[in-house]
């Protein structure tokens, strides 16, 4: 599962600072609750802007899970062994489950599932840009588990303590399952690295293609991140984009060594003074390009989701019609 910084300026056209005029007494009570590290629950009063921010963030997060099933699902029928196929099926099913936990959390804020789905299918809603890259080889599946899910875990652990109860609880459940995703990916790569020269090259090629998009998942630099301040105040964001990115890079360098691959950044080196790894410049132009719909797979991903929705329509309608008929019969018999 896969959040990226969801406070991107383009994504928040309706964004406005919370209006204190809504109700000063309730606002004060809300602020006090947040300051005390407490949780806000669905029916509690909350500022409208807090509610809107959460609907946007949780639903984008849910969309990311659902769209995230596609790049890896692409390899289910071609997994190299039955074991890897079973693992991949379980992982992709988890992503679907994570999407459902999150849609359910978003719905507690008073938005309907159909409206959320419609926002995704119409292209109005965003999802994590990482899924607009293609999965070209079997090694991509391993690298997605290791790097993409690894980055997602870094992003998501702080969300387990986010101020909105249903979101925090969904994240606890998700984080528990996410660790399996990262470990299975690393395990698959380890096995490839013990294989032939061609298999090792395949892993290196996948790392080369996924490294930069993975570290972009943490979102723009703090200096360019417009809503971080407000989201921190609300207890939705606990750690900044740059801090999370640094933490991820520091943890990953060692893992790459164990694996025996090179991370494709010549400027990546230990900085004794900072106690962190320095790294090269991120190509933000590419990032924005993908976020704004011009990545390699944006069109395919949405087309696949629309097709799934349209093809499933008769099933949804038939199931509902059957349930209505059964209910009417039961009533008539009573």
């Amino acid at each position: 599962m896969y959040t990226q910084a969801l406070d991107l300026p383009q994504q928040n056209p309706e964004g406005r600072p919370p209006s204190l005029a809504e109700n000063p007494a309730w606002q004060a009570e809300f602020d006090a609750k947040i300051d005390a590290g407490g949780f806000i629950e669905p029916k509690d009063w909350m500022p409208e802007a807090y509610r809107k921010t959460l609907v946007r963030q949780i639903s984008q997060h849910a969309h990311s899970e659902i769209v995230g099933m596609l790049p890896e699902g692409n390899w289910i029928s071609r997994a190299p062994t039955l074991k890897r196929k079973a693992i991949l099926l379980a992982k992709v099913q988890d992503e679907g489950g994570h999407g459902l936990y999150l849609y359910a959390a978003a719905e507690t804020l008073g938005v309907s599932r159909d409206k959320l789905t419609d926002a995704l299918l119409s292209g109005r809603a965003k999802y994590s840009s990482i899924f607009n890259y293609p999965t070209l080889s079997w090694a991509d599946v391993g690298v997605i588990g290791w790097l993409v899910d690894g980055a997602a875990i870094m992003n998501q652990i702080p969300l387990c303590k986010c101020s909105y109860g249903p979101y925090a609880r969904a994240m606890v459940r998700i984080c528990k399952e996410e660790s399996f995703h990262q470990r299975q990916g690393f395990d698959a790569l380890l096995q490839l690295m013990q294989g032939t020269e061609a298999q090792r090259e395949m892993v290196q090629d996948a790392v080369n293609r996924w490294w930069w998009p993975s570290i972009m998942m943490f979102g723009p630099h703090d200096s360019d991140s417009t809503h971080t301040g407000q989201n921190t105040r609300w207890g939705i964001k606990r750690i900044s984009n740059d801090d999370l990115r640094q933490k991820f890079i520091d943890a990953t360098v060692k893992q790459a060594e164990v694996l025996g691959v090179t991370l494709p950044d010549p400027e990546l080196k230990w900085n004794e003074q900072r106690g962190h790894y320095d790294f090269g410049r991120i190509d933000w132009e590419e990032f924005w390009n993908v976020v704004n719909g011009h990545g390699q797979c944006n069109v395919d991903r949405l087309a696949a989701r629309r097709k799934a929705w349209d093809d499933g329509a008769w099933v949804r309608e038939a199931a509902m019609a059957h349930a209505d008929k059964a209910a009417r019969r039961a009533q008539a018999a009573a």
Binding site: Q93, G97, R173, E177, A319, A323, A327
Partner: peptide, 24 residues
Amino acid sequence: HCGSVHAPDARLALQVARDVYTRR
């Protein structure tokens, strides 16, 4: 309580809940 699901009737609600909330 662990979350919610959409389903047309009780039988499918149980089935969906099993798939979504008890995979492990």
